[in-house]
């Protein structure tokens, strides 16, 4: 819906007078104009409120599709991080599937090789970016978005892989309990 002009609306309002106006009772009052100032005030305040709430939230976290996070009383704000999602059927890195859970059950050992390889690629990219900026490589923190019903065995393997790949700053994403 787009407003063409308030003038047109004013003209329509002029033409659609009430029956009492048509009878000439208020013919001397002049044209009726639509006052949009109050409405504009409401919209401006709403817009400012929404923009402020976006700024105050800091880093925006998008939940990984197919993952229902656990509830917790943890109140730390999420940092800018690499997201490792663990859903019921796959492990995702930055939204891309790197390994199927069914494949993990077949493999032995703590380290998840496809995840380690994907993390290594991320590390190489970060190293290149740091080199271009002339800075030392500082690995970004990792945020684990795990499904609330996954088993600890899986979480343990993901953590072991992260530690093995050099990512030591890790956070568990949770939904803030009310």
């Amino acid at each position: 819906m787009q407003l063409r002009s308030t003038r047109g609306l004013t003209r329509r309002l002029r033409g659609s007078r009430s029956p009492s106006a048509r009878l000439g009772q208020s013919a001397e009052r002049g044209p009726v104009t639509l006052r949009l100032n109050s409405f504009m005030d409401i919209l401006t305040i709403l817009l400012l409120f929404l923009l402020k709430s976006f700024v105050a939230e800091g880093e925006s976290v998008t939940p990984t599709p197919g993952v229902s996070l656990p509830y917790s009383a943890g109140r730390d704000t999420p940092p800018a991080s690499i997201v490792v999602g663990i859903s019921n059927d796959a492990i995702l890195l930055g939204g891309q599937t790197v390994s199927r859970i069914s494949d993990l059950h077949a493999s032995d050992g703590l380290i998840i090789a496809p995840l380690a390889a994907a993390l290594e690629q991320v590390r190489v990219q970060q190293a290149e970016q740091a080199q271009l900026r002339g800075e030392e490589l500082a690995l970004r923190p990792v945020s684990i978005q795990g499904d609330r019903d996954m088993e600890f065995m899986l979480l343990e393997r993901v953590m072991a892989t992260l530690a093995e790949s050099g990512y030591e700053t890790v956070s568990l994403a949770v939904v803030e309990a009310s």
């Binding site: 976290v61 939940p63 109140r75 030591e168 939904v175």
Partner: peptide, 15 residues
């Protein structure tokens, strides 16, 4: 706007 407020529990993995 995000309806769910996502927070984190910070961990440190030992090397």
């Amino acid at each position: 706007a995000v309806s769910l407020q996502i927070t984190v529990i910070r961990l440190g993995l030992p090397s």
